[in-house]
C-alpha cells in the first residue's frame, strides 16, 4: 500500500471514529483500534499508539466545549488523577510483558462492556448527605448551576472510587483507550457524583491519563508519525462536527445501531486474539 492510499483510508476512518465517538459518547479509541488492526492489518502496538493520541485529541477538543459550562469539579478530577496516571504507567509496563494476543482479547472484552454500558440506562444517584469523612477532608463535595439555582452535591465512597480509577487507568495504559465506561461506573455508581459533573470531570481525567501513557508509548516507538497524522486530523475533524450535531439531535437510535457494530467488532477482536491470526 502506498503512503497516500494508507493516509486517505485512515483519514476517512478516523473522521468517522471521531464523529461516532462524540455522538455516542464512546470516544474515538474504541473504533480506531479495530479499524487499524482488523481493517488495515496494522500491528496492535502501532494501533494502540495511534489510539492514545486520538483519545487526547477528543478529550481536549470536547473538554474545551464543556468547561465553559463551568461544571467540571477540578478537585475530584485532580484527586482521582493520582490514581489514573500512576496506574496508566502500570498498564503500559504490563503491556510490555504480556503477549500481544492477550491484549487484543482484553481489548475485545472491554469493547463488549463499553457497548453494554452505552445502552444501559443511567441512574443519577447523587444526593447532598455529606457523610464521607474522606470527601470532606479532600474537599470533594461541590455544587453546579441548574435552572433552579446552584445545586449542592456530596461525594461518597472515596476509597472505592479511587480503586475503580486505578483499574480504569491500568486498562487505559494497557489498551490505549480512555476507559470512559469504567470511569463512569467509578464516579456515577460508586462515588454518586451527578451526571453533569461526572461526564465533564471524567473527560478532564481521560486527557491527563492518556498524556501520561502517551509519553511512554512515544519512547517505545509505538507512535508512528505516518499513522498519527491522519488519525489526529481525522478524529479532531470528526469530533468537532459530532459535537455540533449532538446539540441538535437525539442519538438514542444511533446508539443502538452503534452498539451492534461495536459488539461485532469486539467479537472479531476476541477471535483474532484467540486464533492469533
Amino acid at each position: 500500500m502506498t503512503v497516500l492510499l494508507f493516509t486517505i483510508i485512515v483519514l476517512i476512518g478516523a473522521f468517522l471514529a471521531g464523529l461516532l465517538g462524540s455522538l455516542t459518547g464512546l470516544g474515538g479509541g474504541v473504533i480506531i483500534i479495530p479499524l487499524l488492526t482488523l481493517g488495515l492489518g496494522v500491528d496492535i502496538h502501532y494501533a494502540i499508539g495511534a489510539s492514545i493520541i486520538s483519545v487526547i485529541a477528543t478529550s481536549s477538543g470536547s473538554a474545551a466545549a464543556y468547561v465553559k459550562e463551568g461544571i467540571t469539579n477540578v478537585r475530584i478530577g485532580m484527586f482521582l488523577e493520582v490514581a489514573t496516571t500512576l496506574s496508566a504507567i502500570v498498564g503500559v509496563v504490563i503491556a510490555s510483558y504480556i503477549k500481544a494476543d492477550y491484549i487484543i482479547v482484553i481489548f475485545g472484552l472491554i469493547l463488549l462492556f463499553s457497548a453494554f454500558m452505552m445502552l444501559k440506562k443511567k441512574i443519577d444517584h447523587s444526593n447532598n448527605e455529606k457523610t464521607s469523612v474522606l470527601a470532606n477532608y479532600f474537599k470533594l463535595n461541590g455544587s453546579y448551576p441548574t435552572e433552579n439555582g446552584i445545586k449542592q452535591y456530596a461525594v461518597h465512597h472515596v476509597v472505592g472510587g479511587f480503586a475503580m480509577m486505578f483499574v480504569a487507568g491500568t486498562l487505559s495504559g494497557l489498551l490505549g483507550i480512555g476507559s470512559g465506561a469504567l470511569k463512569v461506573i467509578g464516579m456515577d455508581n460508586i462515588m454518586k457524583i451527578p451526571f453533569k459533573v461526572s461526564t465533564t470531570t471524567s473527560n478532564f481525567m481521560i486527557g491527563v491519563t492518556a498524556a501520561a501513557s502517551a509519553l511512554v508509548y512515544l519512547h517505545k516507538g509505538q507512535i508512528d508519525p505516518a499513522i498519527a497524522m491522519p488519525v489526529t486530523i481525522g478524529v479532531i475533524a470528526g469530533a468537532t462536527i459530532g459535537a455540533k450535531i449532538l446539540i441538535k439531535t437525539k442519538t438514542d437510535k444511533l446508539k443502538v445501531v452503534f452498539a451492534v457494530v461495536v459488539t461485532i467488532l469486539a467479537l472479531q477482536m476476541i477471535y483474532k486474539g484467540l486464533t492469533g491470526s
Binding site: 500500500m1 517505545k220 497524522m229
Partner: peptide
C-alpha cells in the same frame, strides 16, 4: 510536507518494529 515528498513510497505496519519508528523521543 510528508505527503508531497513521499506519497508514492509503500508502507506496511503489519509487524511491530520499534527500532524503525522515526522520531520516538
Amino acid at each position: 510536507i510528508f505527503l508531497t515528498t513521499q506519497s508514492n513510497h509503500s508502507v506496511s505496519f503489519s509487524e511491530f518494529k520499534p527500532e524503525q519508528t522515526k522520531f520516538s523521543s
